[in-house]
Design a protein around this nucleic acid. Structure first.
Length: 490
RNA sequence: CGGGGUGUAGCGUAGCCCGGUAUCGCGUCUGCUUUGGGAGCAGAAGGUCGUAGGUUCAAAUCCUGCCACCCCGACCA
């Protein structure tokens, strides 16, 4: 384990990479851009899945599963969608290997597929091809499906969790009879993502809509939640797309209305991915390691026993187990670290690195006094507290930590949204401070493109709660009706 | 795809310029002492030096090809 660590303030990127590895979350796999999600990292992902899945089901969605492989021809049907992903698709061309005369494994040239198969970069195509046969009448609508899956996008440049060639995600795909209904669905899912991000990840987000430039390939409108990381860069944490009738038209999905007319179906799709793991890590962690919000921590509290003799060990273990039982009865997830192979100091450091929100240290001294030492990961505060009623103490503390982590992130985020009204200041704020810049924009793609070229900043979104406000475009000086949020982003 | 870098024990590395079968740290194993903030001492195990070829009495080291990964850019619902 690394004792000489790169500090967050010195090299954020290296700090992040080290943290992901040292906290046992993930590591690079044999194939470029792919990652192995380790048990501890996957446990956090599972907590995210469980909560999101619950929220999806509470809003009437069901899970289903569609295949990994999609016939190439399906991509020809929705041109924009295909063009958007063409440059990063992995293609399956053969279905068999064989051993050649040199005893090398080779692709069997006789096993070439008639039609190439694309490893899904997203599933609109295969799903809408399926919906075609499921939908005939208004009685078949709406369809509210979600799938948990992996997708592959052959990215040029990858980073653990933030952008990997293969990643895990959920993708919702819904079909509706009217535009209004589909729009309500799109916004509902955005709200669910925002609530999840803030209440569970503890990351405050801006809800907004993307500019046409940044809109999902094949969508009419893309809604998003944007978070701010500790280095001042923005991260898109989830998107919800209003697809209009694009996919229905591409795959010829029509339904008969009550009045007997034939109409195209309205669609939405929405997704979040293992990128949320990146958000979680980057938003809260420090030089000692990961800081997990209690709502997503695989272990909310860890108990580290301290003893010298076998006799002491037995007493401490008994007391620890009693505490564990009491806490678990209150729905608190507890890790009792009774490994005899590591010393307490080692365990303290390790669990800090892994971001466990609370730690109990308990030794002979405590047994005598009926107390434990309670340590908070987020503030590093330690206190001695009575074993009597500890379940309430812990429960309250966990809640407080969850709130405190969110509030700290929110103060940081709010302090890093700056209103800027001239181009010189725009550039200097971007260079020196980072964060979100709220500025006027003339509404054209050309200007957006130009700003991106000049500064690497993109329009993250047009916030949904925006005020209408007359102004002049930061770059061109042309009239503008509202401010938009710029930032450098991951 | 451009620029830079790396490939040597489970991990991190030295050695390469100047050729002689590999250094150190962490980890691992054994034993004793330790245990309230990353333990100490003693001993031990662990290597096709990314890969293919070439030069040479001899290659981790020199030459050529190939492969892979990382970082920085360009690109990126």
């Amino acid at each position: 384990m690394a004792f000489e660590k790169v500090k967050r303030s010195e090299n954020y990127s290296e700090w992040y990479n080290n943290l992901v590895k040292d906290a046992d979350l993930a590591e690079h796999a044999a194939v470029k851009g792919c990652m192995i999600i380790k048990p501890y990292g996957y446990a956090i992902w599972e907590k995210m899945q469980q909560q999101l899945d619950k929220m999806f089901k509470e809003t009437g969605h069901s899970n289903a599963y569609f295949p990994l492989l999609i016939p190439k021809s399906f991509f020809e049907k929705e041109e924009k969608n295909a063009a958007g992903f063409a440059k990063e698709c992995a293609v399956v061309t053969h279905y068999r290997l064989k051993v050649d005369e040199n005893r090398k494994i080779i692709v069997d040239p006789d096993a070439k597929l008639e039609e190439e198969l694309i490893i899904r970069p997203t599933s609109e195509a295969i799903i809408w091809n399926t919906y075609k046969s499921w939908i005939q009448s208004y009685r078949d609508l709406p369809i509210l499906l979600n799938q948990w899956a992996n997708v592959v996008r052959w990215e040029m440049r990858t980073r653990l969790f933030l952008r990997t060639s293969e990643f895990l995600w959920q993708e919702g795909h819904t079909a509706h009879a009217t535009a209004e209904e589909a729009l309500i669905e799109t916004k509902q899912m955005l709200d669910i993502y925002a609530e999840f991000a803030e209440t569970f990840l503890g990351v405050p987000v801006v809800r907004g809509v993307k500019t046409p430039n940044e809109t999902f390939a094949g969508a009419l409108e893309t809604y998003c939640i944007e978070g701010l990381m500790q280095d001042g860069k923005a991260l898109q944490m989830g998107t919800s797309h209003f697809l209009g009738q694009n996919f229905a038209k591409a795959f010829d999905v029509k339904f008969q209305t009550k009045e007997g007319k034939l109409e195209y179906v309205w669609a939405t799709s929405w997704g979040v991915s293992t990128r949320l793991m990146g958000a979680l890590i980057m938003a809260h962690s420090d030089d000692e390691g990961l800081v997990l919000p209690p709502n997503l921590a695989p272990h909310q509290i860890v108990i580290v026993p301290i003893y010298r003799t076998d006799e002491e060990r037995e007493k401490v273990e008994d007391a620890s187990k009693a505490i564990k039982k009491k806490l678990e009865a209150n729905n608190i997830s507890v890790k009792f670290d009774n490994r005899d192979t590591q010393k307490p100091g080692f365990k303290f450091a390790e669990w800090e690195l892994k971001g466990v929100p609370l730690r109990i240290g308990i030794g002979p001294r405590d047994i005598q006094n009926g107390t434990v030492e309670l340590a908070r990961r987020d503030t590093k505060e330690k206190s001695v507290t009575s074993i009597e009623g500890i379940e309430n103490t812990v429960k309250n503390l966990l809640e407080e930590i969850q709130n405190s982590i969110f509030n700290r992130a929110k103060v940081f985020r709010d302090n890093n949204i700056r209103k800027v009204d001239n181009w010189i200041e725009f550039q200097s704020v971007l260079e020196e401070k980072g964060g979100f810049i709220s500025a006027h924009w003339d509404g054209t793609s050309e200007t957006e493109e130009k700003i991106k070229q000049l500064t690497k900043a993109t329009i993250r979104c047009i916030p949904l709660d925006n005020n209408v406000e007359e102004g002049q475009c930061i770059l061109t000086g042309n009239p503008s009706k509202q401010r938009v949020l710029f930032a450098k982003a991951y």
